[in-house]
Design a binder for these strands. Structure first.
Lengths: 227, 227
DNA sequence: GGAATAACGATATTTAATTATCGATATATT
DNA sequence: AATATATCGATAATTAAATATCGTTATTCC
C-alpha cells in the first residue's frame, strides 16, 4: 500500500506529467490504461506502469487504473500530504510569474514572503504579496523558517542572496539565476537552468540529437498510430 | 578535432554549466583541471573529462585544459556556430522575462517576433519587442520561418497556440505552459515543466530522495574538502 | 457459460550513464 | 638531470534506467 521509499528521480519527474494528463481527462472517465496514457504522452507503456506502481497504484486487467484513485495517490505522494513553505527573492518578471504561479496552492507550496532590493518595489503588493526589503531577509527567515529559498535575481546578485539565505538557515535553494552557486555541503541547490534546456533545443533544431523520447524499433508501430 | 556527432543528452545539458563556470574564473587563469571543475560544480572528475572530450577538448597532463580554448569549443559546439530564430507567444511576466533574457544574444537565439492576445499589450513595446496581435501569428511565421516557437501562455490556451504554430510550419516547440501538448509526430515539443522540478524540490525537503548529485563512497573525501 | 483478449504485474534483458582503474605524460621540484 | 606527482585519456566495471517478454487475470463478446 505505502509507496516504496525510493522513487528514482526520473520517475519522480514524470509523476506531475501524469497528474496533468489525468486532469485533462473527461470527468466521466472512470478508468485509464497505461497503454492509453503512454500513447498520449509519448512514453512507453511499461514505463508508465512502473512509474505508477512506484506510488503504490494498482490497476485492473482489461480496464486499467481508476482515475480518481490514481490522482489521489499521485498528488498525495508528490506533496507528501503537507504544504511546504518558501520565500522568494527577486520580484522581477520571473519572480512575479513564479509567485503568481506557485500561489496556486495545489502545487503544495506556500510562499511566506517575497523580497527585492528595488526601493520602488518594496512595500508594494505584487502577485498578492507585499514586497519586503532585503534587510528583512535574514531576520524574517529566521522566524518563518521556510523550507525553500527561491532565487530569481540577476546572476551577479545570486551568490550574495544565496549566502544570506544560508545564513538564515535555509537548507534548500531553488536557483533560477543563470549561475552556479557555492554552498556548504548540508545545503542543496537545485538549478533551474534555462541554458541547459536551450542546449537541448538547439540540438533538436540541428537535428543532430536523438529525440528526447527516442522511438524504439518495437514502439514505432504504436506511435504511428497516435495521429 | 571535430566533436563526435552524438553527445548524450545528459552531457549536453551539463555543457552550459561548464561555460558558466569558466566565465566565473579570474581573467588571468590560463588552465583549469577537470579535478577543479568537478570539485567546484559537485561533479565527478571523470565525468567532467568525458564531457569535455565529447566536444573535442584535450587537456595537458599536470595542467588541465586551456580555459579560453575550452570556452571557444563549448560555445561553438552549443550554438552550432549559428544563430537560431524564434517567436514567442504570450507576453505575461514569464514571456517578458524570457524575451529579455534570450535577448542576450549570447545564447545563440534571436527572437524575431512576440505575440499576445491582450489588446492592451498589442502594439506596445515590451523587452524591446513590439507585441504583435495573434492574427498575425500564422502569416508572420510563414514568412519568418522561425526555428522554434516558445509558448508562454496560460495552460488553457497552450494547445490552441501550439496548433497555430504547427500550422504555420514551426517544427520545434518550447512549451512553458503547465500542460501536455499533442502534436503531429514530425514536431517535437520540449516541456519546461516547473512541476517536475517542484517534485524534486519537495523530495529534497522531505529528505527522502537521494541527492541529485549523489555522493559516492570514493568521492566523499573530495567533497568534504570543498568547504 | 466459455472463449477471446486487453491490460496488468513480475521478471529478464538491454541500453545508457556514471564511476573506477590504471598506464602514460609532461610539469614541477630537488 | 633525475625523481616525484598531478592530471590526462582510455578502458573496464558498476549502477541506473528503459524496454522486452510472458504468464495471469478479469472483462467482454459470443
Amino acid at each position: 500500500m505505502l509507496p516504496p521509499h525510493l522513487v528514482s528521480p526520473r520517475t519522480l519527474q514524470r509523476l506531475p506529467l501524469y497528474v496533468s494528463y489525468l486532469h485533462s481527462l473527461p470527468k466521466d472517465a472512470l478508468y485509464i490504461s497505461s497503454t492509453e496514457i503512454a500513447a498520449q504522452l509519448g512514453l512507453h507503456p511499461v514505463q508508465v506502469r512502473k512509474d505508477l506502481a512506484a506510488v503504490g497504484a494498482q490497476g485492473r486487467p482489461r480496464l486499467g487504473f481508476e482515475v480518481q484513485t490514481l490522482l489521489r495517490l499521485l498528488t498525495t505522494y508528490l506533496n507528501g500530504g503537507t504544504q511546504h513553505s518558501a520565500v522568494l527573492v527577486g520580484m522581477g518578471h520571473l519572480g512575479r510569474a513564479l509567485a503568481a504561479h506557485l500561489g496556486f496552492a495545489h502545487y503544495g507550496f506556500t510562499i511566506q514572503a517575497v523580497f527585492d532590493n528595488d526601493q520602488n518595489l518594496v512595500g508594494s503588493r505584487l502577485a498578492g504579496y507585499e514586497v519586503q526589503k532585503m534587510e528583512n531577509l535574514v531576520p524574517l527567515c529566521q522566524t518563518l523558517k521556510p523550507a525553500v529559498g527561491i532565487i530569481t535575481v540577476p546572476a551577479e546578485e545570486a551568490q550574495g542572496v544565496c549566502d544570506l539565505l544560508v545564513q538564515a538557515g535555509v537548507r534548500v535553494i531553488w536557483n533560477f539565476a543563470p549561475t552556479h552557486l557555492a554552498v556548504p555541503k548540508d545545503v542543496t541547490v537545485q538549478d533551474e537552468d534555462i541554458a541547459a534546456s536551450l542546449a537541448l533545443i538547439t540540438k533538436q533544431i540541428l537535428g543532430q540529437q536523438p529525440s528526447l523520447v527516442p522511438i524504439s524499433r518495437k514502439e514505432e508501430s504504436v506511435r504511428d498510430g497516435i495521429l
